[in-house]
Write a protein that binds this DNA or RNA. Structure first.
Lengths: 335, 335
DNA sequence: TATGATCCTTGCAACGTTGCAAACAGTGTT
DNA sequence: AACACTGTTTGCAACGTTGCAAGGATCATA
């Protein structure tokens, strides 16, 4: 352990309180007293005990970002944005990865035991749903990200998935593609992202007068490269393979791309590809990836701002803030 | 705030201490007392205050992983491994990103103020060097990762960069390549990774009787895709471009790959590529990437184990533990 | 010399928890 | 009736910090 206020105080021949005043630059401390105390502080290498300070002040200066997977680039890139925003406000962000494990999510978000170390939480749930979050015992403010929860009674930031998926699909329609597949549908009720994007995909097809072919909508368990590669293999094995694919995120698209190219097919000539997320990998793949770009900076800014407002005592009812997105056209659909 | 022990105690008509005994499952509590207290605990939704508990117990159950960049896949993947190892031991890992900013590194690692919230630190420095770390005031145990520090007097886990780089280069020599370039050298004294890998590269060339051509060794500021792409452009602009490139990490290689393919050249036929880190992107690129695979699980296991030993009071002198690596041959060098 | 006024310093209590050791009640033994 | 014993409960203090309000010293003014 480092030196405590008391040790410094004894050594400097002043009261604990005075040392505290020096450390915190509080009012009126006589110049020579300050100097003497400062000398001892330096000598002993005093560092305030953050835990005691937090207990006393009721603030730790830490906010937690709880995410399913850090090695999914979208989350890693989002994390960077959140850290930047929080740092600007004097907060330190710590990140925790849950892998979508309900036990871990609960541990971190629901039980005050761990959560209480932090002044606030930004949480992208995968397992916990509306019902779980509704009766959260802890009163640490939370801002939600993602599509998992709809009516949690908490602040929430999300993009219009249906609209974005529709935009992506329409782009493929506009290219004149006839058999447009989708990769990433999810039957599981708890995974709303896939369902919403399928909804947008179908809306786009319908309003373009295309028929909806169930076998072209491929579900995947996760949104990883391997899932995309596997789903693409299935699509290529169909009697009539697709001439375009909308993948529900860039990792799926990169996996699909790998499969397509390894069969000697060309992108976009034989099959056009659209992804979702605009991760850096997609900008450097060959061909580079057309994708939906959610405004990650905006998401981060809103999340942090919303949280800080709550920390400042904002009691207004929970809001749901939509984040912007746009379509970035790159080589995987540009001929 | 949630309920406190005192509130529960008053409501249940017992002492604070007894409630604490129930909560912690301590010795002898009469069954009916326990039941009564438990009922009140549930009613009030009591959650222990983690900060107070930490102050009293001297343990938070949290360890911090401090890394330069989370959106560099190598670090994201390493993070996963660390979290898994720590979870197995009952610890929660929180991650912080420094961007290699010396101010932030210092804040997190040196000043107890923030660091003291955690029982221990696993730290991959980018800015702070031996000198900085030597007089760390805080006594929170630290385990270092990476090549930045050599003689910090702290536990340290690293791989043999010279050996690994030599292995990668020798592989290219064995393929019969004559003009083997390197991307990622770093002149800055503080970035040792690049220097060590250049050393290994040169050793391999020398012992194969190859001449060392300075213009084939390209420095980069960072290890990102864009740096690799830019460096590759320079190499291709040489009168005699290389027929093989050893990139000091996979991101550089992916950037270089993008440049090569966009010029209509083929990999590996025209230029063979080797990377370093074995990130997932490299397994799904086309062609997939030959690379040096550091044993990330082993690094994580050792780091966590070393740290936990220190937390258990292990006072033995700091050790330096080497981690394993091997060469994974994929399409970017296989013909 | 008393009286404020100003400037500096301090003691006490509290944040919520747990270690320690003592206290208490009840039972059985002598 | 006194004693030891077991099982259960409790008060006190402490972890290191800071808010509050009071205390002390110094000086100038009346």
């Amino acid at each position: 352990m480092g030196a405590t206020l008391r040790e410094v105080a004894e050594r400097a021949g002043v009261s604990v309180r005075t040392v505290s005043n020096v450390v915190n630059d509080f009012a009126q401390v006589a110049p020579d007293t300050r100097a003497r105390v400062q000398r001892v502080l330096d000598e002993l290498g005093y560092q305030p005990n953050a835990v005691a300070r937090t207990l006393r002040r009721g603030r730790s200066g830490l906010i937690a970002l709880v995410l399913p997977e850090l090695d999914v680039p979208y989350f890693a890139e989002l994390t960077r944005a959140v850290i930047e925003q929080a740092a600007a406000a004097g907060y330190t962000v710590v990140v925790d990865q849950t892998d979508g494990d309900p036990v871990r999510e609960r541990e971190l978000v629901m039980r005050g035991s761990r959560a209480a170390m932090f002044d606030g939480l930004i949480f992208n749930p995968l397992a916990l749903g509306d019902a779980d979050l509704r009766d959260r015992p802890s009163s640490t403010p939370v801002v939600l990200l993602g599509e998992r929860v709809i009516q949690g009674g908490l602040d929430h930031i999300m993009i219009d998935n249906v609209g974005a998926a529709r935009l992506a699909t329409e782009h493929l329609v506009d290219l004149g593609r006839r058999r447009i597949a989708a990769i990433g549908d999810q039957s599981d009720e708890s995974r709303r992202t896939g369902r919403l994007r399928t909804q947008g995909y179908m809306t786009a097809l319908r309003s373009a007068g295309h028929e909806i072919v169930p076998e072209l909508i491929r579900p995947t368990e996760f949104f990883h490269r391997s899932d995309g590669a596997a789903a693409m293999s299935e699509l290529l094995a169909l009697p009539e393979p697709p001439d375009a694919v909308f993948c529900y995120n860039d990792l799926l698209a990169l996996g699909a791309l790998r499969t397509i190219l390894s069969r000697g097919l060309r992108v976009p000539e034989d099959i056009a590809l659209v992804g979702f997320d605009d991760i850096e990998d997609g900008r450097y793949s060959t061909p580079s990836l057309t994708t939906i770009r959610p405004d990650k900076t905006q998401i981060a800014t809103h999340a942090v701002q919303l949280l800080l407002n709550r920390l400042d005592g904002d009691q207004s009812p929970p809001t749901e803030i939509p984040a912007d997105y746009d379509l970035v056209i790159r080589e995987s659909t540009a001929s």
